[in-house]
Design a protein around this nucleic acid. Structure first.
Lengths: 124, 124
DNA sequence: AATTACAGTTTACATATGTAACCTTTTTAA
DNA sequence: TTAAAAAGGTTACATATGTAAACTGTAATT
């Protein structure tokens, strides 16, 4: 019953461009994503899918369609982050950060302080 | 050229059980995952896929097969975490933690200290 | 005007994933 | 010992995703 919109990895590239450059044309998108090496068709498919899943929309006032994101970067990130933490860290932000910290080069003391802040971050 | 093993959401449930309970039988897994409401077939498919993608393996010394994880929880988490951060936060741990912090109830000062630690965590 | 370069639309096709039935053999409980 | 339950194997089927060709129309370039 939610806005179960899920954006795939490839689609994220498009969304990211649209977030930074609203009202872009297909050409704009194609140029920006050229490093990806995708064919023109691929780009169009990604855009079409984003529009059909209501993550983006079309503005057709001018001669060519201009696309823009319907979902904000912030909300998409939060949604993805939550589902990621649920899937991989049993919903525990604490565990995630602990894991990140263990990969880092913080001193024992700093790690402890980090843990304290994380704890304080609440909501388990 | 990497160990491009990707574990899907449903498969994670199985892996998690195997991490906590190595050398489990299908029945063990089925019982543990019963809250998921999956059919017996579904469980078997998930286990089979994990085995075929070399994330788990079979020990067939006894009468029934016993399954165990071939990849550690730690390495799977790190892999997933990295790909997640790359996909959603442009590879920036910093940005991820900043985002988490902004969702929290830390004081301004604490957030600043958190940021300092994150920065120090290095490898951007 | 003819050619080219896109735009927009439709169709395609392989792999991944969620979810499960069916079949055969073996084990177990009534 | 017979029926039910489970194990292991094979097959299935819809949706998602990565990736793209083909077709139709229009706009820009030669």
């Amino acid at each position: 019953m939610k806005n179960e919109i899920s954006i795939s990895e490839s689609e994220w590239s498009v969304m990211e461009f649209l977030w930074s450059n609203p009202f872009s044309t297909i050409t704009d998108i194609r140029k920006a994503l050229s490093p990806k090496g995708w064919s023109d068709s691929t780009i169009k498919t990604l855009v079409r899918r984003l529009v059909s899943k209501k993550a983006a929309a079309i503005n057709d006032e001018g001669a060519v369609f201009r696309y823009y994101a319907l979902l904000s970067e912030q909300e998409c990130r939060l949604k993805e982050t939550k589902s990621f933490i649920n899937r991989v860290y049993n919903g525990s932000v604490n565990m995630l950060v602990t894991n990140l910290a263990s990969e880092s080069n913080l001193t024992e003391k700093e790690t402890q302080e980090l843990m304290r802040l994380i704890d304080k971050m609440g909501k388990e």
